[in-house]
Design a protein around this nucleic acid. Structure first.
Lengths: 191, 191
DNA sequence: GTCTATACTGAGATAGAC
DNA sequence: GTCTATCTCAGTATAGAC
């Protein structure tokens, strides 16, 4: 205990660098520098760059699942949980303005690269989608729960993408307020 | 007349390849193959890859401006023009599902690369933003015209990003219907 | 204006010593 | 498990013939 394995250091560094600089733009040299190990040592832990991407996505899936579980515990009502989701845009405002949404930007990049890891990255979206859907079902919106989940996911993506491109913090906060308003209003009238 | 200059062929090929495969992922070899010229010839027309990006963005700016002018002429009312904007998602549905929004994905990529051309690419967003704002002003929404323009821009981005990631055509069409409904409803009640 | 040939760089990846 | 050294390949870019 106490010392974290080198492998974990690599995955965490790659996670951050892939987010900040993109997957393709991040080289082994960048990661090695960040972790303070040699380039050669690298291949003891991973056979290829694709394998690191797999590990990074697995890490993100685990971290996301943990976050959703925490929300499920901490927030008493489904409505309160949905508010947590929306407020992610505020909590992560600084990185979103600089680098966009970690999920959206990765999926966008992998789609262009026609990369095999694309499907895995989409699972991150599915994780949120399923969780959101469950909250809407709990609110009595069984028939359109999935559509509502996708709508909220899409709105968040749009906010992140545009706020990132234009570096517009006020836009981000304004849209978050509107999303909260939409939530209140929409949950008052059953679909 | 009749023969298009090689330079224009290069820019058009680069435009398409940057969209389909991303800027960084597109090499000179790809472009050269597509235009059927040698790699060397390339440098007679452009000094660097950055210069090609500049030319591609300039082309997109010109094409976008032309499209907006056409909408301005063809559509009689501001409301009808805004509908044209929303319907872009339908008209370009196939490429959006495969490659996302040309503006959004380019800005996202350049932001991660911390590329100098980022500001130029953002001008594409500004072009739409200004045009949309003008339509909302014409509808009597002077005070919040820019916020409405940004909102519509953000919603479109979200639809494109998520539809592209998940390859979900039904989601795209459902969201377009909701955007039309939002437009009708929101323009009925002044902000 | 277009070509071939080539220089130079950085990337992913391997071999083998320690 | 970690290192150094090295290979191979693709990418950008240049030189110079035609």
């Amino acid at each position: 205990m106490g010392e974290k394995p080198t492998r974990d250091h690599i995955v965490e560094a790659a996670d951050r660098l892939f987010y900040e600089n993109g997957y393709e733009h991040t080289s082994f040299a960048h990661i090695a520098d960040s972790v303070q190990i040699s380039r050669g040592n690298f291949y003891y832990h991973f056979k290829s760059k694709d394998e690191i991407l797999d590990a990074v996505i697995a890490l993100r899936l685990a971290n996301t699942q943990r976050m959703l579980d925490r929300w499920e515990q901490d927030a008493a009502s489904p409505l309160e949980r949905l508010r947590r989701f929306i407020d992610m845009l505020i909590v992560n405002q600084a990185p979103i303005l600089r680098y966009g949404c970690p999920v959206g930007t990765l999926c966008t990049e992998l789609a262009k690269l026609d990369h095999a890891g694309k499907e895995q990255a989409n699972a991150l979206f599915t994780l949120f989608r399923t969780w959101l859907k469950r909250q809407f079902v709990a609110l009595g919106r069984k028939s359109d729960a999935d559509a509502l989940a996708m709508h909220l996911l899409g709105r968040s993506q749009g906010v992140a993408t545009l706020a990132n491109a234009l570096g517009d913090k006020r836009f981000l906060r304004r849209e978050v307020r509107q999303l909260h308003a939409w939530l209140e209003q929409d949950m008052a009238s059953p679909g």
